[in-house]
C-alpha cells in the first residue's frame, strides 16, 4: 500500500506481437524492455534506470516455448525459469541448466522471471549463464532489420552491458545438443542454502576419449565483471589422463583466469580459492555422471 520508493514515471506500452514490440523498440527513445520485471522494476525503484518508455513483452506467447528440433533445443526468451525447469527435454538433454534453475531464487520468483531477463540483465552473478556457456548456446538477437546470432560467450560486455543494440531484443536461446556421452554439473556456493546470490558458481561439461579428457568446458559467475569461460584451464586438461592429481593440479589455473572483487558476499581471495574447489568438484561430479572411477588419492 504505502510506497517506499518512487518508481519514476514512464510511458507503458503493451505490444500485441513481437513485430510490434520490435517496432516500438526501434521507434521509442530511452526505452527499456520489461519481461518478468524481477530485475528491472527493482532497478527502476533504486534509480539505476530511468527509462522514459517501458515496453512490456511479458505476455507475448511468441517468446514462450521450449522446442526440440532434433539437433538443438530452442527456448523462447520470454519463457519463465519455472517452465524451463519443469521441462522434460531440458531435464533429460541439458540437466546442467535445470540444476542451475533449481536453486535460482524461489518458486514464486521463477514463476515470473524469464531466461531472457536473466541474460539481458547481464549481472556478473547470472546463474543461467555458466550452464549456457558450457552448452555453447547461441543467442538470437532480433530487430526490425532482421535477426543475427551470437554465441553466448560474446554476449556479455560488462556488468549490465551486453552485445544488444538499442533496438534489439533477445528472442531465442539455441542450445545445440551436447556431445553424446557428456557429463555436466552446476555447483553454486552462496551464503545460505537457498534463495541466494552466488559467491561463485561453476558449470562444467566433460567428455572422455581413450580414458583421457576430451572436451572440457568450464564456466563461472560472480568472479569477474561478466560470467566467463575458463579457456586456459579447459585447454590444460584436454588430453590429460583422468585422475585426481591431474585435476587438482590443473584447476588451480582457474584462479589466474578470473578477476574477482571483494564485496559484502565474500572477499576476492575467498572467491579465488572457491573457484578452484568448485571447479574441481564440478569436474568430479561430471565424471561421476559418466561412471568414471577417479584414480588418485582419496580426498
Amino acid at each position: 500500500m504505502a510506497i517506499f520508493y518512487l518508481l519514476p514515471r514512464f510511458n507503458y506500452y503493451k505490444p500485441k506481437s513481437l513485430n510490434e514490440a520490435l517496432k516500438l523498440l526501434n521507434d521509442l527513445e530511452n526505452s527499456k524492455v520489461l519481461a518478468g520485471g524481477t530485475d528491472l522494476v527493482l532497478d527502476m525503484k533504486i534509480g539505476r534506470y530511468k527509462p522514459e518508455n517501458v515496453i512490456d513483452i511479458s505476455h507475448l506467447n511468441e517468446l514462450k516455448y521450449i522446442k526440440d528440433d532434433g539437433k538443438s533445443i530452442r527456448i523462447g526468451a520470454g519463457t519463465t525459469l519455472q517452465t524451463i525447469l519443469e521441462s522434460n527435454i531440458v531435464r533429460k538433454k541439458i540437466p546442467v541448466l535445470a540444476e542451475a534453475l533449481e536453486i535460482m531464487g524461489s518458486w514464486q520468483l521463477r514463476n515470473v522471471a524469464t531466461i531472457g531477463g536473466n541474460l539481458c540483465n547481464a549481472s556478473p552473478a547470472a546463474d543461467t549463464a555458466p550452464p549456457l556457456m558450457v552448452l555453447e548456446a547461441q543467442l538470437k538477437l532480433e530487430s526490425i532489420e532482421g535477426a543475427r546470432y551470437v554465441p553466448i560467450t560474446k554476449f556479455f560486455h560488462g556488468p549490465r552491458i551486453t552485445e544488444l543494440k538499442r533496438n534489439e531484443l533477445l528472442t531465442e536461446i539455441i542450445i545445440p545438443y551436447p556431445p553424446s556421452n557428456a557429463g555436466m554439473k552446476f555447483l553454486k556456493l552462496g551464503r545460505r542454502a537457498a534463495h541466494t546470490l552466488s559467491i561463485v558458481a561453476v558449470a562444467t561439461l566433460i567428455t572422455i576419449k581413450d580414458d583421457k579428457f576430451d572436451i572440457v568446458r568450464i564456466a563461472l559467475n560472480s568472479v569477474a565483471p561478466t560470467p566467463l569461460r575458463a579457456y586456459k584451464t579447459e585447454e590444460s586438461l584436454k588430453d590429460k589422463p583422468i585422475n585426481l592429481n591431474v585435476i587438482e593440479e590443473n584447476v588451480k589455473r582457474v584462479a589466474e583466469e578470473i578477476k574477482p572483487i571483494s564485496d559484502v558476499r565474500a572477499s576476492a581471495e575467498y572467491r579465488k580459492e572457491m573457484s578452484i574447489v568448485l571447479t574441481r568438484d564440478a569436474i568430479l561430479e561430471s565424471l561421476k555422471m559418466l561412471n568414471v572411477k577417479i584414480g588418485g588419492e582419496e580426498f
Binding site: R192, A193, A194, T196, L197, V264, R265
Partner: peptide, 11 residues
C-alpha cells in the same frame, strides 16, 4: 535483503 541474509527453511 539481497545483501543481508537470514536463514531460509532450507538451512
Amino acid at each position: 535483503f539481497t545483501d543481508y541474509v537470514v536463514p531460509t527453511i532450507m538451512d
